[in-house]
Design a protein around this nucleic acid. Structure first.
Lengths: 144, 144
DNA sequence: TTGGGTGCAAACTATTTGCATTCGA
DNA sequence: TCGAATGCAAATAGTTTGCACCCAA
């Protein structure tokens, strides 16, 4: 798979192909959501996606946004970022990377994984297998 | 501050003192919650705390559990761990450390921070200041 | 045509809040 | 006593689900 999956200035046909390549039936709503979500590296909540997609015309329901983002995640088009107990962020950067999380503004910023090395990772308990290592650096932007 | 804050086999008077030292008025419910939460290093959801505290007699309400865990967090007695979008975990280990998160069982395991070193931490964006660096290692225990 | 996809609303769940009552100092 | 703490229920918000309808293949 090629990282990152981005769709800048893509034609509708490109989007259709991308979805199809990932085993996703390209429907009207999914295309709209893909165009919004995958047009650049960004971190959006489901609600933000809903509002952006429906900014022009209300053509996508809230349930479909949730279902579609879940599907995109499952198919590897986007990733979930869990840093805030109140909502999930969806990340269009599927490359292995980490995050700064500004707790004051609620915004995320990528940290390329080459910029960060972890030493001495201990063995997981109970013969468990490591799926993913995630580093979250919480920062504050308050003047204070 | 001394780490970790633990209360193994503590008398009620010890708990009262601990809460008082942290600027918390020691009420009946807070004492029960502190005894349950701080008796050992553990990761509990609010609901788990509620059930344990009320296992014998129903003397603490759900709202009070949430309010009290929030208060304990604010006062530095416990920490919040955000790894699951569906609920928050409260961690009685207030020392700087990281976590394994078993996505299959939903359980957390501590990683002492001496066991893990991060190299080349980049500068945070927009002159933000680092508050906390958190490493979450998601693991799977499934036989598969 | 026809099974998967969508919209809608209702259901759900974790968490928060308002307010009258109770309790600790 | 008296303000702080609690309980309860209702409110809130994010997310999921059930089902009738619709559309892509």
């Amino acid at each position: 798979m090629i990282y990152p999956i981005l769709l800048e200035k893509s034609s509708r046909k490109d989007v259709v192909n991308l979805l199809a390549e990932h085993g996703i039936t390209p429907t009207q709503q999914r295309i709209l959501i893909a165009q919004e979500m995958l047009s650049r590296h960004q971190h959006l909540s489901a609600d933000q996606v809903l509002q952006r997609v429906n900014a022009q015309s209300n053509t996508v329901s809230k349930a479909t946004v949730y279902n579609t983002l879940g599907l995109f995640t499952e198919k590897g088009l986007i990733k979930v970022v869990i840093v805030d107990p109140s909502k999930v962020f969806y990340d269009s950067n599927t490359a292995d990377h980490h995050h700064f999380y500004d707790v004051d503004s609620g915004t995320l910023h990528d940290i390329a994984s080459d910029n960060l090395a972890i030493q001495q990772m201990p063995e997981p308990p109970d013969n468990a297998k490591i799926k993913h290592v995630e580093v979250i650096v919480r920062v504050t932007s308050k003047a204070s």
